[in-house]
Nucleic acid binder design. Structure first.
Length: 287
DNA sequence: CCAAGGCCTGAATG
DNA sequence: ACATTCAGGCCTT
């Protein structure tokens, strides 16, 4: 009983390093004891205790602090793999990010890697975002949709986005025209929201799930990238039995159904712990 | 429905 | 030093 209570206290404490270095966000930097991050039209400063101060002074629930961690973690602890990962990365949280930034970030992420994504997004902010001062430091906010929607392909390309440049412009236009309305998507159920977000170019199954999970409150989203496929093959060969090849849309959906049956409505949390664990095992670099 | 090839960039490998 | 391969996910054919 005693050790159980002790562990619950640990669960509730946010571990910033684990959270930021888990592939959810790209525009965060550590400075002394504080982390600074761009979140849409805001800059967040988080100290080692997880306390947030924001440039805009607006409230955010960036760390989803109202989530019932005890219930969530219990629900995903289905086997020794998840028990290991959750214990090792205690305090890893899913974030509730600015949806537009998240949307563009994961369009940029396709066929790329974390370091490259970070540099590209920094360029986008520098060129199209507003420069602000916070804590006597300079930051560039993430550009508003209208600035990316009205940019030329050449201008976007300079940021290092390559063939995704035209996707970024079109996707931003869809936000400006309200064809994609994030507040509405937050209220939709998972499949409906996924259907709508997937209409944007450059948004397939995996990218859609990232956006839904990290900014639109869909905790049943379980992004399946190359890493997650490898993880499932390695640790769950019997439960999810997938043919080793690259997976088709249909296989992706079938697999997702099996996953949510197994891990439940908070599958996305399980995904984040497993992803973090395996990337660390292979000593992949984070931010 | 599925498979294959192209897109773009930088890092790793030869 | 230079060339090739690879990593990465989506779109078109």
């Amino acid at each position: 009983m005693k050790s159980y209570l002790f562990e619950m206290i640990d669960y509730c404490k946010i571990n910033l390093e684990n959270t930021i270095n888990s592939g959810q966000v790209f525009l965060w930097k550590k400075d002394q004891n504080n982390w600074y991050g761009i979140n849409g039209q805001d800059v967040l400063r988080v100290n080692s205790l997880g306390k947030i101060k924001s440039y805009s002074k607006q409230k955010t629930d960036y760390f989803r602090e109202k989530d019932n961690l005890e219930e969530i973690l219990k629900s995903i602890l289905k086997d020794k793999i998840t028990r290991y990962a959750v214990k090792k990365y205690l305090g890893l949280r899913l974030l509730r990010q600015d949806p537009f930034q998240c949307f563009i970030s994961f369009i940029v992420s396709s066929n790329s890697n974390i370091q490259k994504i970070r540099i590209t997004l920094e360029n986008i902010c520098k060129i199209f975002g507003e420069k602000v001062s916070f804590d006597n430091k300079e930051f560039f906010l993430f550009p508003e949709p209208k600035f990316l929607a009205s940019a030329s392909i050449q201008e976007i390309k300079k940021c290092g986005t390559g063939y995704r440049s035209k996707f970024i412009i079109k996707a931003s236009e869809m936000v400006c025209s309200d064809e994609i309305n994030f507040e509405y998507l937050k209220k939709c159920e998972y499949f409906k929201a996924k259907e709508i977000i997937s209409k944007a170019p450059g948004v397939g199954n995996k990218v859609a799930d990232c956006i839904l999970l990290f900014s639109l409150d869909k905790t049943e989203a379980f992004p399946l990238d190359r890493w997650m496929i490898r993880i499932l093959e390695k640790y769950y060969p019997k439960i999810f039995e997938l043919g080793t090849k690259s997976i088709t849309n249909k296989q992706y959906n079938v697999l997702h159904e099996k996953i949510t049956k197994y891990f439940g409505p908070y599958s996305g949390y399980a995904q984040q712990f497993l992803f973090k664990m395996e990337r660390d095992i292979y000593k992949k670099n984070w931010l």
